[in-house]
Design a protein around this nucleic acid. Sequence first.
RNA 1: GGCCCCAUCGUCUAGCGGCCAAGGACAUCGCCCUCUCACGGCGAAAACCCGGGUUCGAAUCCCGGUGGGGUCACCA
Length: 490
Amino acid sequence: NVRVRYAPSPTGMLHVGGVRTALFNWLFARKNGGTFVLRIEDTDLERSTEESVEQLKRSLRWIGLEWDEGPEVGGPHAPYRQTERLGLYREAAQKLLESGAAYRDFSTQEEVAAFRERARAEGRPPVYRGGPYRKMNPEEAKGRADAGEPHTVRMKTPAEGRTAFEDMIRGEVSFENANIEDFVIMKSSGTPTYNFAAAVDDAEMEITHVIRGDDHISNTPRQILVYNALGHPLPRFAHVPQVLGPDKKKLSKRHGAASVEEFAAQGILPEALFNYLALLGAGYAADEEIFTPEELASRFRIEKVSGNPAVFDEKKLLAINAAYIRKKSPEELAMMAAPILAGSGVATPEELERDMPRLTQIMALLRERLQRTTDISDATGYFYGGTLDYDEAEFQKQFGKDFVRENLPELYSRLKDLPEWTEEAIEETVRGLAAEREKGARHLIHPLRFATTGRTVSAGLFETMALLGRERCLERIGDVLEKMGSRGDL
RNA sequence: GGCCCCAUCGUCUAGCGGCCAAGGACAUCGCCCUCUCACGGCGAAAACCCGGGUUCGAAUCCCGGUGGGGUCACCA
C-alpha cells in the first residue's frame, strides 16, 4: 500500500518548484492506487504563518491536487500539522535518549559556532560531536536538564562507515559518516528540528515513498539515522531536481511569476500549469504533450524522472495554456469571460447577462487567438460600448488614401441599407463594391476593420461585424467619416 | 572550500552498445492557407561538454577533467 506525502513549510507562497514535487507525489499515488498525504511542517515558529497555510491549501486545490489525508480532511494519523504533534517528537526523543542513540548537549550556540570556526581555521572538518557532553553520564545530564538547564538533544552519529540509500531516480547515493556531525534533533526551545520531525512523522504516518526536492538529498542520511535509531523500516526515496530560471539559477520572484497565485492572476489555466509542470523533467515519451491528469498519472514513472535540473520555459507554458484555451467550448469561455469583462469595466454585469449568447459567439471567434485568459478583456473590448478612440498615426494610414476616402461613404450607405445584417450580406456588399471599383477587397477590408474595431488585427472582418451589430458598426463608420470631414479630408 | 547530485538542439526531452550521419515538442526562420492576426499544413536551421579507456562497435559502460546545481544552522 503506497503512501506518499507532500510536506511544505508555510513560510511563503507556493512556488512552482514546490507544486511540481507535490504533483509528482500526487501522480505517483494515483498511478499506484496509493494515498497522498499533506503535512504542514510549521516547526519554524518565526517564519510560519497562518496565511501561508491557507494560501498553500488554496493553491494546491486550484491546480487540482486534492489530498487524501491532511489538514481539513483528516485521516488516521491526524493531526497533520507539526506544531500539533509536538508530544510525538518529545516522546521519540526520549526514546532515543534512553537507548543511548541521542544525548543532551548543554553547550551554547556560540560555543558550537566557535568550535567549528576553530576547526576550519586549523584545516580540520568542522564536524561537531558534542564535546564533553557526548560522553557525559546520562544520569548527570538528566539531572542538569531537570534542574532547568537549557540544552539541545543531539543524535549520536557514527564516526566511521557510510550511510547509503537507493534513490529511485539516481540509484545509489552514499555519504561518509565522518562528514555527518551530531545534528540537533530537539532545539533548546523543546521543538524538534526538521530532520527529526520529518523522519518521525514519515515513520509514524507510514510513508512508503519519500518524493521531495533534491535540496533534501544531503538530509537523507541524517533521517536514515533517525529511522534506524527508532527501529523503523526505511521508506524508498526519490529526489526530484529543482526548477531553474532561464539563467539557470533557482527559480524565484526575480524571474517574474514564480508562485501559483501569480500564474493564476496572469491568466494561466490550472490544467495548463498542471500539464506543463508534470511534463517538465518527468521523462514522458515526447510524442504528445497535452494530457489529462489521469493520463499523466497512468503514464507516470518515477524512475524516468530526469535527474538534472529543469529550466522553466514560460513560452512553452503559454503554448500549452493556449492549447487548453482552444480546447474549451465557447460556452465555457463565455462563463469565464463574463466576470473578467465585468471586472475590467468594459461592460456591466446586467449587460453581460443579457448578452451571453452573443458573448458565446464572440468567444468562438476569439478562442484561437488567446494565450491567457487575461487577454480576454483586451480582445473583446470593442464588442461593447459605442464609439472608439483611434490611434492618430494609424488613422492617417488607413483613411489617408484617396480610394478609401472616395468609397467609404458609399460603403456606409450600402451597409446601412442592407435588408439583412448577416456575415454573408456584409461580405457581399464589401466585395461587391471593391469589384465595381476594380480594386482588391483588401483595400476596403482593412480600413473597415480599423473603423469598426479600432484595431488592425481581429478575427475575420465579416463575422466580426455581424457580431458587432449594424448599429454599432454604422455608428463607428459614421464617426470616422465625420472625423475625416472635420479635418477637411473629405 | 568539503560533501553530494547532474551533463543530448536556445529550452523540455527521446535514446537505455549496433535500428542514430541522433527523433519529438516549444521557441526561431521560411513557404502555403488568407481580409489582418491567430489556428492549421509543409519545410529549414539547431545538440550527444572535453579527454582517456572498455569493446569488432559508444550519445549509450568506466575513469579523469571542466561546467552547472544543491548542501554544509538550535531554517525547513
